[in-house]
Every structure is written in structure tokens, then in C-alpha cells.
Amino acid sequence: MKRMAAIVRVVELRKSFGPLEVLRGITFDVREGSVLTIIGASGSGKSTLLRCLNYLEQPTSGEVYLDGKPIGFRIEADGRRAPDTAANISRMRAELGMVFQQFNLWPHMTVLENVIEAPIRVKRLARKEAVDLGRRFLSKVNLLDKENEYPARLSGGQQQRVAIARALAMQPKVMLFDEATSALDPELTGEVLEVMRALAKEGTTMLVVTHEMGFAREVSDRAIFLHNGQIEEDGPPARVFSAPTSERCRQFLSKVLH
């Protein structure tokens, strides 16, 4: 049974890079256990939005809450907002797993070392415990046999699955996928999508930026179409993908689907 509480809340989020305003007031909630996909043309602000959620980019204004707690700022006794400490920001980030387009595995560590690094350093797990945990997630992405390989010896699809296991090993409340299959050869996207599909089925809360429209339509509970830094279309996937009310969303879909 899925709980109905909003685990992620985004309120009037804005982000500018110099004079360029990339996000122009984004507001949405994500229910625990649900999958939200974010689609849109390149430059529409999808990746920036995800990166603002875990504070890799500092929002210009607006608020992000994870499980009711603000990310990146705190409310002082007198009610004013103050920037949060680096330690607190790190703590919040640990609860948001992120998977990047370019995998970003650390090349000087083996597959298993990549996966257990943060559990050992951040969560301070004993090494043995972390290894058990790491193996559990590696077997989940079907790569237990590669635990002693270095990332450079794996295919792109395998590397991305390791990156997913690495994020999962922190047992985050929410997983963020930033175009996780865009850097892969077409024949390798399937294995990564398979893992993501399984996670969705287990009830993992996921925010997915993707160009895989078929996948998005199939696994998501809700889809958002971003255009010029604003939400242009928002609703259940059946409606967003089949009968969008926005003309721009219709044009975008007809371009990517044909």
C-alpha cells in the first residue's frame, strides 16, 4: 500500500545563471513510492531542476523540502531563512540518490569499492557490513561477478548499473535519474531501463529525467513537461503522452516519437 504523503515538495523554485533564468518558478509534490518523469526539450531546465533538488546547484530562490525538512536552508528562531551548514547539506544529499548521464564512477576504485565508499565514509558502517550491503545491491543490478573489476573494463550499461547500485547502497529516500540512458549505445539502454523498471515496481520513489518516452509512459505515475523553465503540462502519463493540452507539449512529443 503506497503512502500518500509528499516526500519531495518543490515550491516556486527559480534558478538563474547570470542573466539567464533557467528555472522560472517550479512547484510540484512527489508522493512517496511514486515515479515522476520530467520531459522536455534540451535546455528546458530538466537537469538543472534535478541538480537543484540535491543542491549541486544552489537555487536562486524558492524552496525544496525532503520529508518535510528544507534542503539548503534552515528557519532561524526569528523565522528568517539562513543558509544551512555544509555538514547538514551533505546529510540531506545522502538521502537523495543521484544517477548521472555520464555514470561518473571513480576510475581508481573497483566496482565494489565504488559502491561501499559512501556507506563506509558517510554512514560509518563497518567494512564487513558495507561489503555485505554492497554485494546485495550489486546482485540487484546483476553485476556481482564484476565486483573486482575497474570501471574502465566495463561497458557503458554495466557502468551505469554500478552507478545505480552505488546510489542505492546509501539507501536514499528518493532516487534522481538525470538522463541515465542518454550516453549509452541503443543496445545497452535496455539493461539499465530494466533495473529502473524493477526499482519502480518495488515502490522506490523516483524522479526521472529521460528521453525514453516509451519507458516514461510505462513506469511513471505522473509526468511533467518542462518548457523554458516552467511546467507546461502536468498529469498522469496517459494524458500527458496521449492527449496533452499544451500545444508545445504536443509538438515536442510528435518530434521525439516520430
Binding site: 543521484m98 555520464q102 571513480w106 576510475p107 565508499e117 559512501a118 565514509r121
Partner: peptide
């Protein structure tokens, strides 16, 4: 990007320097 991946997992600046950046 190696730093960003470490940041996203909650590692501190010093930890990232010592464990991710310095060895490479």
C-alpha cells in the same frame, strides 16, 4: 563530475579531496 558524484552521496569536501581527488 567525480566530485559531484561524491557530493551527491553526502561526502564532505575534505573526504572528497582525500579519497576521490588526491589518489587520482
Amino acid at each position: 563530475e567525480h566530485t559531484e558524484a561524491a557530493m551527491s552521496l553526502g561526502m564532505s569536501k575534505w573526504m572528497i579531496m582525500r579519497r576521490i581527488i588526491a589518489p587520482q
